[in-house]
């Protein structure tokens, strides 16, 4: 099975390179250097926080662009332009196609995060040199890397969901909207619940809270992967507490891919 998945992943990755998306990401990384130094220099306090914010946000932003404007389009094009026949006419099953495609696109996101992560770290380091920026006392490069890893995992969850929505819907725009909605809900579900409970707008037994609790078993809680504020301010953080979210993320990706395969197998192409 692996030897069939690998060529699909390879072709997907090469296809992405041909689209020059990664070059755009690289360019974004270079621009980040300059912008980070200029933007950070505009602040008077907590400069390191601004520099780290900027770096980590760029990594997330680039990943989201790749998913929303690249991956969804690429998957839908395979269906719409019938190029999928070229792959499925070979001895490649639908499940191998899905897994191969996911690995190929994941690789693009991983490389983008790696490149931008290094650029972000370099721009923070460069800021410490040029504008005499003092990093937060408890700032750690290890945790900075962990933050990028978690952001990447969050992006991969979103990618797996995008796969599912492309398989379920028949149109790339519908898939785009569904993925966008899932992203928005995934980022805010926990916040909404906390606001409702803290402002005592509703009791914990209300239907809305029950609905949010139910949704939290269906939709991904992407906010658990966001530790940017903690890293930027060097707040106390136990890295081992991230073990459960990592397992959660990987299992969620697995479930989404399985569902995508199931839907794809039933789908007429």
């Amino acid at each position: 099975m692996i030897h069939k998945i690998f060529p699909v992943a390879h072709i997907t990755f090469i296809d992405c390179l041909r689209n020059k998306a990664l070059y755009g990401i690289l360019f974004m990384g270079i621009v980040l250097f300059g912008i980070n130094i200029i933007f950070t220099g505009m602040f008077s306090w907590d400069l390191s926080k601004v520099a780290v914010d900027m770096g980590l946000s760029t990594v997330s932003f680039a990943g989201l662009i790749l998913i929303f404007f690249f991956s969804i389009q690429m998957m839908s094009n395979d269906m719409d332009k019938k190029t999928i026949y070229l792959i499925l006419s070979r001895p490649v099953s639908k499940s191998e196609y899905i897994v191969g495609k996911f690995i190929g696109l994941s690789l693009v996101i991983l490389i983008s995060s790696l490149v931008l992560g290094v650029c972000a770290a370099f721009s923070v380091w460069l800021s410490t040199m040029t504008i005499n920026l003092q990093l937060a006392e408890a700032f750690s490069w290890k945790l900075f890397s962990l933050s990028i890893t978690l952001q990447t995992l969050s992006l991969l969850i979103l990618l797996s969901l995008a796969f599912l929505w492309v398989m379920v819907s028949s149109h790339s725009f519908t898939a785009f909207l569904l993925t966008l909605m899932t992203y928005f809900v995934g980022q805010n579900m926990e916040n909404v619940k906390n606001i409702i409970l803290s402002t005592k707008l509703m009791s914990p037994d209300s239907i809305s809270i029950k609905a949010i609790n139910f949704a939290s078993w269906i939709l991904p809680n992407l906010s658990v992967f966001n530790i940017k504020t903690i890293i930027a301010h060097g707040l106390p953080f136990d890295a081992s507490s991230m073990a459960a979210p990592v397992v959660y993320g990987i299992s969620y990706i697995g479930i989404c891919l399985c569902l995508s395969i199931l839907v794809f197998k039933k789908r007429e192409i």
Partner: peptide, 24 residues
Amino acid sequence: PNVIKLLAGEFSGIIADYLLLQIG
């Protein structure tokens, strides 16, 4: 304020920076 946090999502840090820059 709590609604803007929902809109900002994971980019809340950078949006806070921008708001303060604008105010300043």
